[in-house]
């Protein structure tokens, strides 16, 4: 095994081009488990820790450019207002020690259907900035997950950053597991209200071969909210609408039975989380509207 230690991003891209089988290592919280247990013996490890700007973020006009190696702890501490869904999801990852090392770049690299960042990124709307010596491209998050633990990266590409849309409304993240800490999701659900475009976006984790959006459910809810004038009148969402939304979210799942839960439990739980997160975010939207109207 060789340990490659590029000191800059350009050096890292050159190393990845020269050794396409090199395994990047950022926080190491996925990679080291595989090496410790002899599940993986890469020919090259490509250490990204020395590339400082991978651990930085920039808050822009419409989105946050989040460096691939920004640890979850920093997201929770610094980006709660801009990226509430991702901050909530980050808080549910493992333990403080793991959150101090692991980040979204590694979560995307592993592309596990159970990765907690994914539902939040799908719901908020995001693009993954990837680069190789051939150039840069931005992959829409919807196109990033290509199969179980597979993503759209080419062999010579590295993830540089994730551009996540800044929240324009309430966001929530919910996860089912046996305890609060150190739990891989049985299933997870992210929801974001986008009042500016009057749309709702979702993300489902651990209930299909890849993280997915519940697009039919989103379309149904977008139409129902529009028809009932809900965005303007701020009324409580009709229970039948919430139920239909939850059922459509369940239907978007394609889960399996495994040690963590059965397929039917997952489908059920996703429906429950969909209804709850819709209630929470909508209550918060109504509250914000009242405050704005009260102030006006």
């Amino acid at each position: 095994m060789d340990f490659l230690r590029p000191a800059s991003w350009e050096e890292a891209l050159a190393a990845k081009a020269e050794h396409p089988t090199a395994v990047p290592i950022a926080g190491g919280t996925d990679v080291m488990v595989e090496i410790n247990f002899d599940h993986r013996r890469p020919e090259y490890l490509l250490d990204l820790n020395r590339i400082g700007d991978l651990s930085e973020w920039e808050v822009g006009e419409a989105s946050v450019r989040l460096g691939a190696s920004v640890p979850y702890t920093k997201i929770m501490e610094n980006l709660r207002a801009e990226l509430p869904g991702l901050a909530l999801a980050s808080h549910t990852v493992a333990s403080p020690q793991i959150r101090n090392r692991g980040g979204v770049g590694g979560n995307l690299g592993t592309a596990s259907p159970a990765g907690d960042a994914h539902p939040a990124l799908l719901a908020a709307g995001a693009e993954v900035e990837v680069e190789s010596v051939r150039g840069t491209r931005r992959i829409p998050i919807d196109a990033f997950y290509t199969g179980v633990k597979r993503n759209a990266l080419a062999a010579d590409e590295l993830i540089r950053a994730v551009h996540v849309k800044k929240a324009d409304g309430p966001q929530q993240f919910s996860k089912v597991g046996t305890r609060n800490a150190m739990v891989i999701a049985v299933c997870a659900f992210g929801l974001a209200l986008h009042p500016e475009t009057r749309t709702v976006r979702t993300g489902i984790g651990s209930a299909a071969p890849t993280p997915v959006r519940a697009k039919t459910a989103e379309e149904f809810l977008n139409a129902a909210l529009e028809e009932g004038g809900f965005w303007d009148n701020g009324q409580i969402i009709t229970p039948s609408v919430a139920k239909q939304f939850a059922d459509l979210c369940s239907a978007a799942c394609n889960p399996i039975d495994d040690v963590r839960g059965t397929a039917s439990y997952r489908r059920h739980a996703v429906g429950v989380m969909a209804r709850r997160t819709l209630t929470w975010t909508w209550e918060s939207y109504r509250g914000d509207r009242r405050t704005i109207e009260g102030a006006a």
Partner: peptide, 29 residues
Amino acid sequence: CEQGECGSCTVRLDGVPVCSCLVAAGQVE
């Protein structure tokens, strides 16, 4: 456990608590 689950290997890396079983030796240069 060597898989980040138990925390018994916790050390501080530049001040930050981490599981030393999940840090590659070369990363601490």
